[in-house]
Computed example of a mutant assay.
Amino acid sequence: MSKVSCVVPGCRVAVAFDAPLDLCDEHLSVAAEWAGRRDGVTDVLPTPCRLCGSRLGVRWPTGWLCAVCEWRHGEPLDTDLPPPRVDVVYYVRFRDRIKIGTSAQPRQRLRAIRHDELLAFERGDRSLERRRHLQFASERLGGSEWFDRSEALDTHIAALAGGVTDPWDLFARWTSEAFARQG
């Protein structure tokens, strides 16, 4: 079903009823291609980013950029640079308990910890971990890093997540930012 004719002078082709602008399919396509050249097109990278591991990219006429760390797809990495250290405080759930720990290598660390779910990351080191242990001391199980779930702890974790559904996306961003600071 169409509503009107295309607004491009000389074009009398009908506009699709659900078209966002009064342009025919051909002129909408031309506009989308122009916008893609100017703004890039968000899409899945051909292969995961070698720098941060993200699959989300922006396709430009000149090539792909990682949407997380802006690494140009296909460019070699500077292997002479040591990997940056990104310390995080992690929050994992096992059954009805939550562990608050820290690591500079969270993938390796979390493989060694029995858990049901990674809840959140917070950028910080042992001093921040100690502050969180004190903050939630009333929920702490003995002298361990495990805590009973509570409304306060759940609220804190929800605030850390801040709408991010996968904590690894935050870690990838922090890692890519650290790489960028290295030069």
Rank of each mutant, 00 (worst) to 15 (best):
M1G: 15
M1Y: 13
S2N: 15
V4A: 14
V7C: 11
V7K: 11
P9C: 03
P9S: 02
V13Q: 12
A14C: 09
V15R: 02
A16W: 09
F17Q: 15
A19L: 03
L23E: 06
D25I: 12
E26M: 11
H27M: 01
H27V: 02
A32V: 10
R37H: 14
R38E: 12
G40W: 05
V44L: 08
V44A: 10
V44P: 07
P46I: 06
R50K: 15
C52E: 04
C52D: 00
S54L: 01
L56A: 15
W60Y: 13
P61I: 08
T62F: 11
G63L: 02
W64C: 05
L65C: 08
A67E: 09
V68F: 09
V68Y: 08
E70W: 14
R72G: 08
R72E: 11
H73L: 15
H73V: 15
G74K: 04
G74Y: 05
L77M: 06
L77V: 05
D80H: 15
L81M: 09
L81W: 05
P82K: 07
P83I: 10
P84A: 02
P84Q: 03
R85C: 13
V88G: 04
V89N: 07
Y90P: 04
Y91A: 12
D96I: 07
K99W: 05
K99C: 00
T102E: 12
S103A: 05
A104Y: 08
P106I: 00
Q108F: 13
R109M: 01
R109E: 01
R111F: 10
A112E: 15
I113F: 00
R114C: 14
E117C: 01
L119P: 03
L119T: 07
L119I: 00
E122W: 04
R126V: 10
S127W: 13
S127P: 12
L128K: 09
E129S: 00
R130N: 14
R131F: 09
R131W: 05
R131Y: 05
R131C: 04
R132H: 10
H133E: 00
L134T: 15
Q135E: 14
Q135W: 09
F136V: 04
E139M: 14
L141H: 07
L141S: 06
S144T: 10
E145L: 07
W146F: 07
W146G: 06
F147R: 00
F147D: 03
F147Q: 02
R149N: 07
S150G: 11
S150Q: 00
E151V: 14
E151W: 11
L153Y: 02
T155Q: 13
H156M: 12
L160Q: 06
G162S: 02
W168I: 02
D169P: 03
L170S: 14
F171Q: 02
W174D: 05
S176I: 01
F179K: 09
A180Y: 04
R181Q: 10
R181A: 12
